[in-house]
Amino acid sequence: MTAADVLLGRALVEEATKKSGIVWVRGSGSARALWHVWHDGAAVLVGDGPGEQPLPTGLEPGGAAEVTVRSKDKGGRIVAWTATVAVLAPHSEEWESAVGALKGKRLNAPDAERLTERWAAGCRVLRLTPGASRTDLPKTSSAAVPLPTTATTRRPVPAALPRLLLKRRRERN
């Protein structure tokens, strides 16, 4: 791989991640879709606290994470990159800078005026610094087993319903 390829890969990671509203992050378990902000050359995200997104397992300081970026308009995979995980200490200079960027992008916060205090008290702010990237598609399926849920699907339409609807339409005419 040439130096130009490395620079183009970094530029692709940065632009794709900046423009995407969410990224898929995999620690040691299954991947999760997470909202983020691109700040100072890394993806910054907040979670694992009250009222915030749950982070995937295995995102520990110094560890690695697999980040997959999707296209904002088509939803397809653009690039995947390996990240080094750093947990920012609350109220440190780096944390304050990251939280300032995150706060501007946080939608529908129930307590916008106390947001940073809540994040400092009960959430983790992570910085995912890009490493190696790749744009080739995987050879196997990336489909994951859906997470357990209590949601159900609609029951089948009763067989007599179409006749009843047609009968009402005829009576109106």
Results as ranks from 00 to 15, higher is better:
residue 168 R to D: 15
residue 165 L to G: 08
residue 126 L to M: 12
residue 87 V to E: 05
residue 57 T to K: 04
residue 91 H to Q: 15
residue 163 R to Y: 09
residue 116 T to G: 14
residue 61 P to G: 04
residue 10 R to C: 07
residue 136 D to R: 13
residue 136 D to N: 11
residue 6 V to I: 14
residue 136 D to W: 10
residue 145 V to Q: 00
residue 159 A to P: 10
residue 55 L to Q: 04
residue 87 V to W: 00
residue 6 V to H: 11
residue 106 R to P: 07
residue 137 L to F: 03
residue 158 P to N: 09
residue 61 P to I: 01
residue 72 K to A: 03
residue 48 D to G: 12
residue 124 R to H: 12
residue 38 W to K: 01
residue 76 G to N: 01
residue 84 T to P: 02
residue 9 G to S: 09
residue 16 A to K: 00
residue 166 L to V: 14
residue 9 G to Q: 03
residue 84 T to I: 01
residue 98 A to L: 08
residue 76 G to S: 02
residue 5 D to M: 15
residue 94 E to M: 05
residue 125 V to S: 13
residue 98 A to E: 07
residue 151 A to G: 15
residue 155 R to M: 13
residue 164 L to W: 13
residue 142 S to N: 02
residue 45 L to N: 08
residue 67 V to M: 07
residue 92 S to M: 12
residue 98 A to T: 09
residue 20 S to K: 09
residue 18 K to T: 06
residue 124 R to M: 07
residue 108 N to L: 14
residue 18 K to M: 08
residue 24 W to K: 00
residue 154 R to M: 13
residue 18 K to E: 10
residue 110 P to D: 13
residue 72 K to V: 01
residue 7 L to Q: 13
residue 18 K to Y: 06
residue 76 G to M: 06
residue 148 P to E: 12
residue 74 K to F: 05
residue 107 L to C: 09
residue 118 R to V: 08
residue 38 W to L: 00
residue 125 V to F: 11
residue 153 T to A: 12
residue 42 A to L: 04
residue 1 M to H: 15
residue 164 L to F: 13
residue 47 G to Y: 13
residue 126 L to A: 08
residue 87 V to F: 01
residue 169 R to G: 10
residue 122 G to L: 10
residue 105 K to E: 12
residue 40 D to K: 11
residue 3 A to Y: 09
residue 38 W to M: 01
residue 104 G to A: 10
residue 140 T to K: 10
residue 129 T to G: 01
residue 139 K to Y: 10
residue 97 S to R: 14
residue 31 A to K: 03
residue 12 L to M: 01
residue 126 L to P: 06
residue 105 K to N: 10
residue 61 P to H: 02
residue 134 R to C: 00
residue 158 P to S: 08
residue 67 V to W: 06
residue 82 T to E: 04
residue 104 G to P: 12
residue 54 P to G: 07
residue 111 D to L: 07
residue 166 L to R: 15
residue 58 G to H: 03
residue 70 R to T: 00
residue 118 R to D: 03
residue 15 E to L: 05
residue 172 R to D: 04
residue 108 N to R: 15
residue 10 R to H: 09
residue 22 I to G: 01
residue 27 G to E: 01
residue 88 L to F: 01
residue 114 R to T: 09
residue 50 P to F: 08
residue 147 L to D: 02
residue 24 W to V: 00
residue 1 M to V: 15
residue 114 R to L: 07
residue 16 A to V: 00
residue 150 T to M: 14
residue 44 V to W: 02
residue 88 L to S: 04
residue 110 P to F: 11
residue 55 L to R: 05
residue 116 T to R: 15
residue 7 L to S: 12
residue 82 T to S: 02
residue 123 C to A: 13
residue 93 E to G: 09
residue 138 P to T: 08
residue 154 R to E: 14
residue 45 L to T: 11
